[in-house]
Design a protein around this nucleic acid. Sequence first.
RNA 1: GUCCCCAUCGUCUAGCCUGGUCCAGGACAAAAGCUUUUCAAGCUUUCGACACCGGUUCAAAUCCGGUUGGGGACGCCA
Length: 446
Amino acid sequence: MVRVRFAPSPTGNLHIGGARTALFNWLFAKSQGGKFILRIEDTDTLRSKKEYLEEILFSLKWLGLDWDEIYYQSERFNIYREYAEKLLSSGKAYKADKLPAEAGEEQAQPKSEGQAIILKVFPGKVRIQDMIRGEIEFDTAVIKDQVLIKSDGSPTYNFACVVDDSLMQLTHIIRGDDHISNTPKQVLLYQALGLELPKFAHLPLILAKEGGRLSKRKGATAISEYREMGYLAKSLVNFLLLLGWSPGENREILDMDEAVKLFDIRHINKTAAVLDMDKLSWLNNQYLKNEDPQILLNALIPDLTARKWIDKDNFDRNYLLSLVKLLQARLTVLSDFLERADFFFLDDFPVDPKAQEKFLSRDLSKEFSLFIQRLENLEKFELAEIEEAFRQLAAELGLEAKVLIHPIRVALTGKTVGPGLFEVIYYLGKNRTEERLAKWIKKETG
RNA sequence: GUCCCCAUCGUCUAGCCUGGUCCAGGACAAAAGCUUUUCAAGCUUUCGACACCGGUUCAAAUCCGGUUGGGGACGCCA
């Protein structure tokens, strides 16, 4: 049975690259009817933090990447020690205070007084068969003797990784390209320990727009940042899916279930991909406009209450739902709703100064007053009636509808963009509409 | 510096393995138009690429070599 793993280190948040590695492992497991294992690589006790661990687990769940088993390396130090002892007694490893230094080279200092256990590396070639790249050959001349157990007793990454990958019976190691030079070192360890080799696949890296690695300076990296910005988990997953892999048949939008059906590791390409925020935003808009407004509203309620725009124990759900429906096709990220819909919640909403200058610098007292009257006279305050009344008025005044529509929109919303004016009026209600228009009516003097 | 990986529109990619159906297809972005009260959405259209050089072949985006460019790794970090 196929068994794969994602092995994050809780020394930082789950970032885009890690998430994609996890996703592809997950997909491979699901598509093969296998197991997806999570292994927390917390051997660096100083840098590992509980907050990071929690954030990583939360983000994985948020993305929908559930795991079948979970292990913590910090609980397995004696296992690594045991394996190192084996290599020691078979003469394949040795104890030393320091790695033998090459000429002119500085060596990292030991962490503590104890002796490290180090693997001897012999001259030769290591060939690895990569499922994505084919054969890669390394000369062991470029590989130094490898520290297995540090002088403080903790295992090194490569050693713990090999021992665990083997003990956890992993069949495929799917990881980022940046591990490609670790692989020959690990193969050497498999050989020294007499363990069976898993299959390797190295995923291309995700690059920043400016080139080079993704980093804090070069665009958002943490999954949680994307969540906070208002991207939906499914758009992020869909986006990640399209980075380095293609479902074929010109498909762009697909969910995880479809991806599981279509996934074929051989179709992962070798080229590093640049993260394209525009496409992510487009995907998010696609999902947003088709999403159930109930779900979007639920996601928005915490923000709405935090801003005191609604009372958390007493609000009109149907009304809010209508507002979500009105705006959802116009959003890039969900949080855009808060800026776009502010005027529905605040009487003191921000007014775009340019819009005011352009549409409200002219005196529209007469037009606004007449429109207020027409609204007052409506038998039913409904969409069709509002529009009818407005168009009739415009016609009587001999004005093109848009000549009045724009100023009214700015008066009611403070913006030049937004949903149709009559919808705005309808959902704002008669009173608020009239009040806001009245503000722009100059008092008759004398 | 040494080693390793990669190379199709600005970006994500299809095609490459199994040469001809590719004067290279789709998507994002950009531009234009339609629709429209604005903005989105939607629809239509346009712009736009096989990095370069050489080889193999009747035929190369596809196979081979080199150059250039990009990326990664060289820790008692993971």
